[in-house]
Design a protein around this nucleic acid. Structure first.
Length: 320
DNA sequence: CGCCTTTGACCAGCGC
DNA sequence: GCGCTGGTCAAAGGCG
């Protein structure tokens, strides 16, 4: 499912791709080679339909997974197209100005090396990765990494919290003009030594999507981050995977640890120099295998999963 | 008692 | 200059 973030604010429109279905370790040479093959394998034994209680042949499931993988490939190409369009828009002086004029203007009042709010919380971090550049009063270009991440949450969950492995301290909340949901402002709990800030707000279009905007980079390791993979005991929900695009390129964030409370921990945020490379990484066998293994662990923890899967497959079968 | 969240006030930039 | 808006501050209250 392709989920378009409504983040027209800031002139950046991240694209979120929920890869919770469709990625399969379908190795070349195994399984059906064509969609027609897949459709043949979808069919039940002659003269009868699959019933919900039937054990669906593995080849049928594999065929379906291969088919969905093909759909994912097409979606990936679509993202590449959208990203190219986004880059073209951002290269336009007007759009870029509109996207960051306010921030740039405010930042321009701050010294390039150290701008303190009184608590020293907003020190610039020299050498930060380029994402959003801010002109200083000296005409130099300060670079602040800005990453936007979309996360699916329970719509009934009113807490604007994104569990990403870091500890945050909330310092403000504001209702913005273009979104009825309030925006929450967080600072890294390691402030003032860590300059990272985070803004969290529900998507205006889809209240089940939480948009988190990170500004800056952590200068310390995550307290819960080191080599983490979710423990199977806590990963029992759907497996969201979001790709955010900023002005320096896309960032993929795998929220593989979504728990029942709707919170997530960011497993990894890897920057890619360009989307093609990113897509290649996503398509790599190692990535897919790890992802599928993780998904399988998560999904099979849900007792309703097999029932839901059988029902979904049954729904797709042609009527005779 | 200390830490954290909440929330109204305040500040600064921008457009008219 | 004034109003609107986003971002931040800081006092007050809650909680462990």
């Amino acid at each position: 499912m392709l989920l378009m973030d409504s983040a027209r604010r800031g002139g950046c429109s991240p694209v979120c791709l929920d890869l919770s279905v469709g990625l399969s370790p379908s190795s070349p040479g195994s399984g059906p080679e064509t969609t027609a093959d897949a459709e043949r394998l979808d069919r039940p034994p002659a003269g009868r339909r699959w019933l919900q209680g039937d054990i669906v042949p593995a080849k049928t499931l594999e065929a379906r997974l291969t088919q969905v993988s093909e759909e994912n490939r097409r979606l990936t190409e679509m993202i590449a197209y959208l990203y190219a369009s986004q880059v073209a828009r951002q290269s336009s002086p007007d759009s870029h100005h509109q996207a960051s004029s306010r921030k740039r203007s405010r930042d321009s009042l701050e010294p390039p090396s150290n701008s303190s709010d009184g608590n020293g919380n907003t020190k610039a971090e020299p050498g930060d990765h380029t994402v959003e550049s801010a002109l200083t009063d000296e005409g130099t270009c300060r670079r602040i990494k800005v990453t936007r991440v979309c996360t699916r949450i329970d719509p009934s969950d009113t807490t604007l919290t994104v569990k990403d492995g870091y500890q945050w301290r909330k310092y403000g909340q504001k209702v913005t003009r273009d979104n009825p949901s309030p925006r929450a402002y967080f600072r890294c709990a390691y402030a003032p030594s860590c300059p990272v800030k985070k803004k969290v707000q529900r998507s205006a279009q889809d209240s089940s999507v939480l948009v988190a905007t990170y500004e800056g980079e952590h200068n310390h390791p995550s307290p819960t981050r080191a080599g983490e993979l979710p423990s199977p005991a806590t990963a029992n929900g759907p497996v969201p995977c979001s790709i955010s695009i900023n002005s320096s390129g896309p960032t993929i964030t795998l929220d593989l640890t979504k728990n029942g409370g709707g919170g997530v921990r960011v497993l990894e945020a890897a920057e890619a120099p360009d989307l093609k490379k990113l897509c290649q990484e996503i398509a790599s066998p190692d990535f897919r295998t790890a992802l599928v293994e993780q998904m399988a662990r998560s999904l099979t923890k849900d007792p309703k999963f097999t029932d839901a899967l059988a029902a979904a497959i049954l729904q797709q079968l042609p009527e005779y």
